[in-house]
Amino acid sequence: MKKILITGCSGGLAQLCIKSLSKKQNIKIIGIDPRLSEYQHINVTYYKKKYSRNSFEEIFSKHKPDTIIHLSRIGHKNTNPIFKKEKLLDLDLITTKQFLDLALQYNIKKAILMSSFHVYGALSDNPSMLTEDSPLKASIKHSQLREIVEIDYNFTNWAWKNQKQINTTVLRPCNIIGKNINNTISQYFKSAIAPVFVDFNPLFQLVHEKDMSNLIISCLSDIATGVYNVAPYEFIPLKTIKKLLNPKHLSIPSFSLSIITKILSLTLKPNTLPDYLIDYLKFSSTIDGSLLQKQLPKFSFKYNWKEILEDLKN
């Protein structure tokens, strides 16, 4: 029997993966998340626990999983005001490392680790098809993105270092969109008050949540250890997306948005539009997903961009 440990199991994407996997026979799923899971599936053991070495060790020693699907970013909330950002980042990185070390110690055979296309950064001189070996420039301008870049480096180092022992797939997907996904970009697309720039119109790539969960499950098959971008060959201008979702969306000049985001973060919802997202709304950060397609020739994206946006709209 295959035993799969899924982190971030309360998240929308994890729930879709669990739903598909739980239908299969001879698979036992163990999930961990500090949040309470809204959904409960048969054949799934949930742990509502904080991400810490002790929690992970308890699960690893009790269930002895052979596969990990690491979907959540290990984050520690700033509950104590004396904790500085640097300290929290340090804690997040250490806990991620502990998780990976335990996976190695307990003889995991397959690991799927979720990173993001955000690691490449949104820069004016980005090539249109960022490949997996492009430099990770996200944190050059925004320190908030340092964490995802550092964690990505951790994943890739770990994957190559242990490639003889563990088959690892590091995924860098483009914007994952769907009813169950509550990420910043989905909130931004849906929001009527979140504006677009009149003077910039970057290109976006979208992947449907169901396509993403199917792809994660496909990656459980033995594909070569490596880092893979996940994106269909579709490039949609931001204004087209906003027009379809919110025909009466707000358009403003780019220089004014920095001020608006600061006001928004102080008054309405804190994370409606994080500061770093401004660059992603000005410059394209589009990726080349052809390497993964070569590894998974039978896989294809079922949803095109119009269907994805219609789904989000409804």
Partner: peptide, 18 residues
Amino acid sequence: PWIGQWMNSVGAVVGNRN
């Protein structure tokens, strides 16, 4: 601003090797 997006719309591309 404006020029960059217009240039992309009419077929211009940022000059890099890739």
